[in-house]
């Protein structure tokens, strides 16, 4: 009897425990369902989602504010991954917020970090056309920026290495070796001719001193000459002005003289023409008078009948 009584107690306790566990599960599940979430969609196009899984945390400024509910490749031409995240309804996600993948460098576990928008922006609570939930834009993490910079640095470094490699080609190495040999030879010559070089340097130094003295002398001479030139310049300026005035007057006089000479030439030509004609006329008159005097009879006794003109007659 005693043994049977213990089985009943154990069975009762087991049933009680199962009932309590069932109640606890139902209670916990119901409590979870009572937490308020706001669902958002994030399209990741640039970043890798390596280490991200369903249930991965969604954080804002390092504080978990939600979880990843699901993810899938987005339909359409763009190779984007659509991540559905449930975020606590009490967390205000504003317009202009951006999401990026933040990955633990040691474990590789990834989380979605949301960089919220400015405080004065309105909340992001409306779904765009064709979307079921509001869409948080994809951002870029500091790691990505560093990685991009490192990638460019690596590319540039590779180019530099290639150029260095080209610079250090066999031909260039031979040229550099020859240059070094020439330099060595030159230094040897310089060392051998050190005395001559010292003498040359001394000569240059002496010449420099003489040149400096000469410069000083030239400077003094120039100072003296400047004063003289200034005086000469003033005198020359006055002389030039007088010369210019005289030249202008001379030019005017020359113009007047030229005009008068031209006028004299023209009028003189006419005058000479007239005089010559008068002289010729006078010569003709004298010739005619001479012809008349050549017949003294006609002068003394008058014309004869044959000399009379039409209508003329002698008494």
């Amino acid at each position: 009897m005693e043994t049977e009584g213990r089985y009943t107690l154990v069975g009762t306790l087991v049933l009680a425990v199962v009932a309590l566990m069932t109640l606890a599960i139902v209670w916990l599940a119901g409590a979870a369902d009572q937490i308020a979430y706001q669902t958002y969609t994030i399209y990741f196009r640039q970043q890798s989602l390596d280490g991200l899984a369903v249930g991965s945390p969604v954080k804002m400024r390092g504080i978990k504010i939600g979880v990843v509910d699901s993810y899938r490749f987005a339909q359409g031409s763009e190779e984007a991954v659509s991540v559905t995240a449930r975020i606590d309804e009490g967390v205000p996600v504003r317009q202009g917020a951006a999401a990026y993948i933040k990955r633990n460098l040691v474990t590789g576990i990834a989380a979605v970090e949301i960089d919220n928008g400015a405080a004065d922006r309105p909340p992001l609570d409306k779904a765009p056309s064709g979307e079921r939930y509001p869409v948080i834009a994809e951002g870029s993490s500091d790691i990505d920026k560093v990685a991009t910079a490192l990638s460019r640095l690596a590319v540039n470094g590779a180019q530099v290495l290639e150029k260095m490699n080209a610079l250090m080609s066999d031909e260039n190495q031979r040229a550099i070796s020859q240059t070094l040999a020439h330099l060595n030879e030159l230094s040897g010559h310089l060392a051998a001719n050190k005395t001559s070089l010292d003498a040359a340097v001394q000569g240059i130094r002496d010449a420099s001193d003489e040149f400096r003295f000469a410069g000083a002398s030239i400077s003094q001479a120039a100072t003296r000459a400047e004063g003289s030139i200034t005086d000469v310049g003033r005198s020359a300026d006055a002389a030039l002005r007088e010369a210019a005035t005289a030249m202008a007057r001379l030019q005017q006089d020359a113009t007047d003289i030229s005009s008068r000479i031209q006028q004299l030439s023209e009028t003189g030509t006419l005058e000479i023409t007239n005089v010559s004609r008068d002289v010729r006329t006078s010569a003709d008159v004298l010739t005619t008078a001479g012809q008349r005097l050549s017949n003294p009879r006609a002068i003394l006794f008058g014309p004869v009948q044959q000399q009379l003109g039409p209508g003329e007659s002698l008494p």
Binding site: L270, T273, N274, R277, R280, T281, D284, V285, T287, T288, G302, P303, Q307, L308, G309, P310, E312
Partner: peptide, 29 residues
């Protein structure tokens, strides 16, 4: 300019010609 003329014409006597190629002077004109 003054008009020029040959010495025979440019005289005070009037000139006539009875036959071609000859010239004479009026004696009382």
């Amino acid at each position: 300019l003054d008009t020029t003329a040959s010495a025979f014409y440019d005289a005070d006597a009037l000139v006539f010609s009875r036959t071609p190629g000859t010239r004479g002077q009026y004696q009382f004109a």
